[in-house]
């Protein structure tokens, strides 16, 4: 069954003509829109296998994060992928941005263990491997994450999972980021709106409780399990001293979330040249997601 899905996907991608995969359309414009002549195909859907004691899951790219997380949470596990509930696994990987919990759960780039993708010639290629640790050959999985589907169209992946935290809680208080970052050991998130800081703590209940107490003594207030502020959607690079302009700063990763679109990021000519060389190598005719450019995407 699984193999057939992939084979069908491969055939739908075909060997020529501009093509892109459409998922939940939750991040459709990142890095530019595909050109009008681009044929849109869908990736296969479904969880192939989930072995909780191995902490890996094999899932097809068209599966939504909602469906995947539902299955994983039955065993109190999760994956480190960001997006709304309609975002697909493939979409989240191709966008490749990390969420605000990166400080605790790590980067999307470490989540993808193996990918089966259709290349520009219409062949099914396997990159990476199923185990949690692997240095066998070049790490094409790294290259695929954040590539906006310009190097290959992902059909099925194996992802690393992690145990869900026993307890998670948000606090809000008056410490400035420089002070707040040293109070607790490894908060999962630390946000700043220019006035107050918002701290998310995760872990064993008993540890979280004592950390909460520490923060309460510093005037922090407990805000429940949901993030108490809404995070705008556009990501800007934050530099100390920059005007927040109503945005929210992810302190650990220096990202400023704003409701206005960011200017195009700056890259050195050498980096862009090398990146484009990689793209040309993988897709000489430029048929995969034409019109999209990872170097135009935000941080």
């Amino acid at each position: 069954m699984g193999m057939n899905d992939l084979e069908d996907f491969r055939e739908s991608v075909g060997e020529s003509g501009p093509v892109a995969v459409v998922g939940g359309r939750t991040h459709w414009t990142v890095g530019g829109n595909p050109t009008d002549d681009t044929r849109l195909v869908s990736a296969p859907v479904g969880i192939d296998s989930f072995d909780p004691s191995e902490m890996t899951v094999s899932v097809k790219a068209g599966t939504t994060l909602k469906d995947l997380n539902e299955e994983l949470s039955r065993y109190r596990q999760e994956v480190c992928l960001e997006g709304s509930s309609e975002t697909t696994v493939g979409g989240a990987l191709m966008i490749g941005t990390d969420g605000i919990r990166r400080n605790l759960i790590g980067s999307v780039r470490e989540t993808l263990l193996q990918a089966e993708y259709v290349d520009a010639k219409g062949k099914l290629i396997k990159a990476g491997g199923p185990t949690v640790k692997n240095v066998t050959g070049y790490d094409l999985c790294r290259l695929l994450v954040g590539s906006l589907g310009t190097l290959g169209l992902v059909g099925r992946v194996i992802l690393r999972t992690r145990p869900q935290s026993e307890k998670s809680v948000w606090l809000q208080g008056g410490l400035q980021p420089e002070e707040a970052r040293h109070v607790c050991f490894q908060p999962s998130s630390l946000l700043w709106n220019g006035k107050e800081t918002f701290i998310q703590l995760e872990g064993y209940g008993i540890d979280v409780d004592s950390e909460v107490l520490k923060l309460k003594n510093l005037g922090y207030e407990e805000m429940g399990t949901k993030c108490p502020i809404s995070i705008p959607r556009f990501r800007h690079k934050f530099v100390n001293g920059m005007c927040l302009d109503g945005g929210i700063v992810d302190v650990y990763s220096s990202i400023l979330y704003k409701s206005t679109e960011a200017a195009e990021p700056q890259h050195s000519n050498e980096v862009v040249r090398l990146g484009n060389k990689v793209r040309t190598m993988f897709d000489p005719s430029g048929r995969l997601n034409p019109g999209r450019d990872p170097y135009r995407a935000g941080p």
């Binding site: 990390d98 994450v145 954040g146 990763s253 990021p265 890259h267 941080p299």
Partner: peptide
């Protein structure tokens, strides 16, 4: 150094090269 460079993760493939 922020770990958020956009574009292809060339750093990521260089490691282990």
């Amino acid at each position: 150094v922020d770990g958020h460079a956009s574009g292809y993760d060339l750093r990521g493939v260089f490691v282990g090269g």
